[in-house]
Design a protein around this nucleic acid. Structure first.
Lengths: 228, 228, 228, 228
DNA sequence: GATGAATGAGGTTTCATTCAT
DNA sequence: TATGAATGAAACCTCATTCAT
């Protein structure tokens, strides 16, 4: 049993390499970036499974052969995008939880900020996050790794908070802090990923945010959230 | 805004048909079933996207041409499996919620039964459910339909319970019942789908069940769950 | 050089046989006829190349296996239809030419009757005739044979008439009677086959008939056709 | 009713494109041409319906995948051949008719030149023309278009000549000029297409030419062709 | 006589990937 | 660096045809 999850390694090294092992120069880096941008853009409209090397290359105004100079396959390119996203996201989530006292109105506000941050982040990075979810679901270890790195710190922070509250005699006495954190993160991620579906069924995003914030706050602190 | 979701139509008609429109006889039905069984079995080990007609046919000891006699493509075959699953699941979930009073210890027991039912059901039908999730995520309407039919009644029942509690002055006064139900169902489905991941991270299924049960009970009734 | 074409053999024997060599009884003959009727009907709407054994069988409410009891393949079935058509057509054309004196107004009337007969016959048997043309064009000897049998007598009769006129010092003195007949028959068949195309381009069938009749009359007799 | 047919658009744009949208370079164009040449060559021996992508590719010493780089299917490749043929043919026929005065011996010589041109052209381009006829017959609009473009100018020129003669009080007074032109073109095309069949039946090509020339001359001018 | 079922055989099509320039 | 071209390999899918009942 591992009581604490340690962050997995980043997939992408600092220096991008071309297929022949050389570190690309300025022109090469520009081409590489163009390919990444196009891939990201295309993920917005078409499904991950429909994203072909040929298409990305054409969209980027270059040839498939060029694509292979920078990425061994489509997944690897998306992984780079995913890595960039992780850097932004993990940091943002950590910051929100770190700023939360879990006490009184401010504590609840922190919970709400967290729910909001998740919803916003998922909205911003929807295309890549969808791929991460899909590939993880299909058993792709590289993407599972991304997912872990994105949510790991958040998960640990919530678990720590829950544990802390329990020690103060406040939280949910009988529950495993890791279970609480895991369930809450699962809830957040899943609801955020399906925000549009909820809207379609007539549930507004704001209502989702409040609902989740209250569940978070209560689950961590065991206190009734303050009524607004 | 649609305050109540109505169950979508089942995909599979009563009488299975062969490609030429005829209703298959005993031998034909046996072959068809064999193909379904093999497909289900193979989903256990390989990813849905890697499931090829050739493979299923070979596994079932027939030829691809025979497969096409009974299903237009792999998805359609899986849809049949999914439909069978829905029939069982939707019924089972409805039963659990219907038996819940949401009052006192019995009410909490109902919440726990629900969490347990979800975890168990997902464990039993993991391969097909994974495909349903994946295909839904990829925008396949037929599978989204399956998902809706599976969870719709449960969602409505939870929303109704939350609304009912609010009327009695007990529930979560400021929250949209539909949001509550949606968030809870999302949590249940997502956690159940990733049960193995949780186990791997050291969180036992029982703890997940209890944690979710308490969240459910509190979210619907606004009451602190009774300590065991 | 063959100055006279002799009629080729009919493809279909008097007694239809089943695949196993037996002469079918009443029930069998009914099935066989049903298949023929359906094939004929389907030729009306779909192209000859799209006519599949499975389709004919289904349309006839029976199975492919049954089809093979009566015909070795689709072409053979159509050949039967074509044979029936030839019997009717060759006879009709012969009659018209036989009734023509090639003298004066009556002679021209005969030419017009011939043109009319061709146009009408092609209209009546358009589906089968189209197949005959197609298959002949594709080099199918069996269908070329049909075409010959349909037009052979007519061809010979026209050649004889042209030759006869030449002997009387009237016809086209310098032309080969066989060439005249061949060209006229080609013209008749081709125009009749494309009657609808002509209508589409704004040329009425009546005008085609008159035009061809005049060409025929003049080509055979060398006389200016009488003005109406 | 359309009294005048306007030429349809050419099917092939100026710049051939590869499957991925790029304009092929020298090597690519050579491969493309090789494929076209092989297709043309193979049409000589085998029927159009039996011409498979695999076969053309093999014959050209490449792979099916390469074929698809230049043509979406076999028909499209043949259409290119047909287009090239049309350019040559339409021009040639126009020239012949334009050079015809329809007066006296020179007029008849023009008619004979036309018949000769048709016979020669069909002999030269027999394989492609056979496909055009077949596909048109089967209702393929793209090939019908080719046929129209090949014969349209000729048809219009003949109709104009016939109309002109009528105005001079010479032609066939009671006949529709469009009908005359249509019938003559049909005759020419059909006889030319079956030249070999005629030879087989003992009718020499020269005799066909003279016969058709006389019919043309008389049909347009209403005058007895001058005896040689 | 009729046919439910099964399938061999054959062509189509798509891409990831490579290589020579 | 970049890429035009070519292609192996892998599915797909469709029918004509057969056979046991």
């Amino acid at each position: 049993m591992r009581s604490d999850q340690t962050a997995a390694q980043a997939t992408e090294a600092e220096e991008p390499r071309a297929a022949d092992g050389r570190v690309p120069g300025r022109r090469g880096r520009a081409t590489r970036q163009k390919l990444l941008d196009c891939a990201a853009e295309m993920l917005r409209s078409s499904s991950y499974r429909d994203l072909k090397v040929v298409d990305i290359a054409r969209e980027a105004g270059t040839s498939p052969a060029t694509f292979y100079q920078y990425f061994p396959d489509v997944e690897s390119a998306i992984l780079v995008l995913a890595d960039e996203m992780v850097t932004v996201g993990a940091d943002r989530f950590s910051r929100v939880v770190a700023a939360t006292s879990w006490k009184g109105k401010g504590g609840y506000a922190g919970a709400e900020a967290l729910a909001g941050a998740m919803l916003t982040f998922w909205e911003e990075h929807q295309p890549v996050l969808r791929v991460v979810d899909l590939a993880t679901e299909e058993g792709d270890a590289r993407f599972a790794n991304v997912r872990t790195r994105l949510l790991n710190d958040l998960n640990n922070a919530l678990a720590a908070a829950a544990r802390d509250q329990q020690k103060q005699g406040k939280g949910q006495p009988d529950l495993d802090p890791n279970a609480i954190a895991g369930v809450l993160v699962a809830m957040l991620a899943h609801v955020a990923a399906h925000r549009l579906g909820f809207e379609f069924w007539g549930v507004r995003t704001d209502e989702l945010k409040v609902t989740m914030a209250r569940i978070i706050f209560w689950s961590v602190t065991g206190q009734k959230p303050p009524t607004s």
